[in-house]
Amino acid sequence: MSQSYNRGLVEDFGRWKEFSAGMWAWIFHKFTGWILIGYLFTHISVLSTSLGAAGNEAAIMSETDVYTTTLQGLESLFLIRLLEIGLLAVAVFHILNGLRLLMVDLGIGLEAQDKSFYASLILTGAITVASVPTFLTGVGL
């Protein structure tokens, strides 16, 4: 729908206060989805260091192979730990809201679609907060 002039679109973020629950769910689901697929590519790249590590039995046994040192080097960074917590939050939300969407696709509980969105938000927050200690063990600030 071409517009002869710009009167602002409804989904402009300037109007975010007017967004409905379902619209937020869609925005968050898409946003977390982009992060997850982006992460999958980086994840495989990092794990590819195992190609260089394989075969060098001595280094593997003494845990000084390139795979082990790369992963542990990354894990020793506080920033990486923070990002991991973020990733957990993103994944948990995508899973919970994904379950919500599967229910919607099956035609179950459509009247409660907004409540189930809020529930997945709250659950995501709770699970993330509860996981913080686990994700921060053994890292120096």
Binding site: S20, A21, G22, M23, A25, W26, L101, V104, D105, L110, Q113, D114
Partner: peptide
Amino acid sequence: CQTQFSCTE
């Protein structure tokens, strides 16, 4: 359709 429920609302 992305099931945002905007239309239904």
